[in-house]
Write a protein that binds this DNA or RNA. Structure first.
Lengths: 189, 189
DNA sequence: TTGATTTGTTGACTTTTATCAATTTTTTTA
DNA sequence: TAAAAAAATTGATAAAAGTCAACAAATCAA
């Protein structure tokens, strides 16, 4: 098993040797170039992606070519175009590798296999889902209760690495504000 | 078992007679008066609520007394102050019954019991969680990509009942806009 | 049913943020 | 490393939404 995945699982789940081998077989290694589109808008997202190294962006495109970042997925985290993956429908969002990335992919079918075959896998996954859901609830709250400056400050506190690492325009998209507004926000203090 | 819960479960899960009795014992009936606060801000949300009749609101309060509606939970749906319930921490949000409501409550511990004792319960719950998560992702997208008018139009299309049923100020909170802006939006067409 | 309270509407004005455009800075790649 | 491309900054202006205030309408509770 890939050490990064092993690290992810440690403390969450104890696997028998056999189960560990099954998990290993289900996750396929994949490398993506910087800016590579993994899943295009309109395609079905058939995999979950575990980021070993690099960074993925799940983003929407408007008719006018504008882009809005729905999610950013960094090292040690899972991500995909979730509605498409779960509902098995064409995705409103595209998935892009923002950096040269190393990924482990898990297909919908293999995920099902793990639920059925590996004791504790579904519980672990359910707990991970709960935490992702909580994060998205908190993001919704930030839009309902905060202005752009406050959202940026919170992001600075909770994810300073993201800000350091990614182009400001991506951060601006993620915060739901324009590039120019973010630039002014940063200048102001 | 309460017929509303039975209806919810039908098609999702086949229960043995024994399991059905266990489920029945885990869910406690509760009635709430209009405007009753079920969980105050700062308290831990110890239950999931299934709404048989009525409507719950999960909302945040600012220091200035302003309120922001995080979620609305109507008949046939589950809800709670989710981060508090899962993390077992004091809740940032309060839960209020907007109408005279009939509820079924499931404690954290009883939820655990159902996961452990009832085959298929965790899978059913995981799938429900996935759908709730998808809904919250779509709500995030609406904040990132749409203006107030568009968000309101989408809500009209997807939940016309909510608009008909609830005071406009609650809908405005839920959309993340001021009461006045919503009033003007409605007048404009 | 009526007085009191809450909710909704509208106007005037302010603040926040977006948009467009020009320029500088940084990054990429040939 | 140099030219090209992409990203960031800054200014001017416009649009969107918020705030405050007054009043109207609807709802509630005695």
């Amino acid at each position: 098993m890939h050490p990064a995945l092993k690290e992810y699982l440690s403390g969450k789940l104890d696997l028998s040797l056999q189960d560990e081998q099954l998990v290993s077989r289900c996750f396929k290694s994949k490398f993506a170039a910087r800016n590579e589109i993994m899943v295009a808008k309109g395609a079905v997202a058939r995999h979950l992606y575990f980021v070993v190294k690099g960074c993925l962006r799940v983003f929407l495109t408007g008719e006018d070519g504008s882009e809005s970042t729905r999610f950013l997925v960094v090292e040690g985290r899972f991500g995909t175009a979730f509605p498409s993956f779960i509902l098995r429908q064409p995705s409103a969002a595209a998935i892009q590798s923002l950096e040269s990335s190393e990924l482990l992919t898990l297909s919908y079918e293999d995920r099902q296999t793990l639920y059925e075959q590996v004791p504790g896998w579904e519980t672990m996954d359910r707990i991970g889902l709960e935490l992702d859901y909580i994060a998205s609830i908190q993001r919704i709250e930030s839009f309902i209760t905060m202005d752009a400056k406050m959202r940026y400050e919170i992001l600075q506190q909770t994810n300073p690495d993201l800000i350091r690492r990614l182009p400001a325009k991506i951060i601006a998209d993620y915060l739901g504000i324009s590039q120019e507004t973010l630039s002014r926000l940063k200048a102001k203090r």
